[in-house]
Design a protein around this nucleic acid. Structure first.
Lengths: 219, 219
DNA sequence: CGTTAGTTTGACCTAATTCAAATACTGTGG
DNA sequence: CCACAGTATTTGAATTAGGTCAAACTAACG
């Protein structure tokens, strides 16, 4: 069995959460500047992370430099929870960000605990899996236009459905999340604006003028 | 919180596994014929599943019929483990298959258990997440040729690295897993054969003639 | 303000799709 | 065991969505 004693990372929700402290490293708060690396692919996974403010991207890079962004993480989101001993992705701050860091707990450590911790960790992992499954459908079967619309709606939803999105990531980040190029993302946004579905007062601010039409487009 | 009491499905490994029976429904064995549906998207997730023999696909369908296969499941693989009350994917037998079925256990049921069960379930979920993350990179950033080579190597690895693959799925299944069309899959396979990397004695049998070259291609 | 990086737009190109047809397989009934 | 019908696969030709390369524009920052 490839997974064993050290299978499980710190159960972030439990550790970060309420009153239940389990290690001297609980809840160390760290600030990262825009574009700063938080951890790199292949590094030992010593900590788990929770975004307090700002935004983080996790991604993987192919040999020749192609980048695929796995997920964007915003306030209250967890990242860096790995199965094995190493991080399988890299993580960087998209904007200046505050991140809560806790030392992971090994499975051995977990064993003696209230299994609420395992349940919390499972919940986080399952949520991540479901988001990733949606991402697979987007990348495998959606057009550029549908992909961009999906992202805009997702960003809006995660921010509490504001009509005006403050977009923290660059066009390149969007492209690398959506499996497109920066030019296609830009052209598609322009087209959505021409069609009256969105309005782009500045490149980092996007107004969803017709949410119904956008929703209709993403399925 | 969207997830709660019924968050967790039957911990399949524990229920299916060794000696630990927890419900009268443990380990019911069912045969499915080729192309038979096992469950449908949106149906209540009452059971969890383990492949004993054969092959299963889980997939999602967009409004207009586009299909994205999420994952192929072979002997010893688990599927149908969901977070919520409903299946988020559909599942069908690719070939005649035997499947072990167990009633899921709610979180409430899990709470009283040895938390080994939660750990097993977490392990399964994490493995699934990692596979799905690889799938995201494949769909987002790899060429048709790289995608096909990745699939062949993955199938081989999961079967214990045989040189000759007995491929249970159709070209259409491959296409819907790889985010390509059936024609592109076929052409790409032909090209890999022309290049000497594989040999295709029959459409459902593929010999990996140059594993190193294939590996080199997928990164 | 000028420099630099990020974004948009334009023109052209190509990988993959689409549409269409040929070929090869599978299973069934005679 | 063979012929046939139906399905799956392969191949071909034409099209296109999205990519590439290049230049113009815009905005942030020292």
């Amino acid at each position: 069995m490839p997974f064993d004693a050290q299978l499980i990372e710190t159960p972030a929700a439990a550790v970060f959460g309420d009153s239940r402290g389990t290690s001297p490293f609980d809840g160390v708060q760290i600030r990262y500047a825009r574009e700063e690396e938080i951890f790199g692919e292949g590094e030992p996974a010593i900590y788990v992370y929770k975004v307090l403010s700002g935004a983080v991207r996790t991604y993987r890079i192919l040999r020749d430099g192609r980048r695929q962004i796995d997920e964007f993480h915003f306030a209250r989101g967890y990242f860096g929870i790995e199965a094995g001993e190493e991080h399988r992705t890299s993580a960087e701050a998209i904007a200046d960000s505050t991140v809560l860091i806790a030392r992971r707990i090994s499975l051995a450590g977990l064993a003696g605990q209230d299994n609420d911790i395992a349940r919390q960790l499972l919940k986080l992992t399952v949520e991540g899996l479901q988001r990733t499954q949606d991402h697979v459908v987007l990348l495998g079967r959606k057009s550029a236009c549908e992909r961009v619309a999906s992202l805009l709606l997702d960003l809006s939803e995660r921010a509490g459905n504001p009509r005006t999105l403050e977009v923290p990531m660059s066009r390149q980040d969007m492209a690398d999340y959506l499996g497109l190029t920066i030019e296609t993302v830009s052209r598609t946004l322009t087209q959505l604006q021409v069609d009256g579905m969105i309005y782009i007062p500045t490149s980092r601010r996007i107004v969803l003028r017709d949410r119904a039409a956008l929703l209709d487009m993403v399925e």
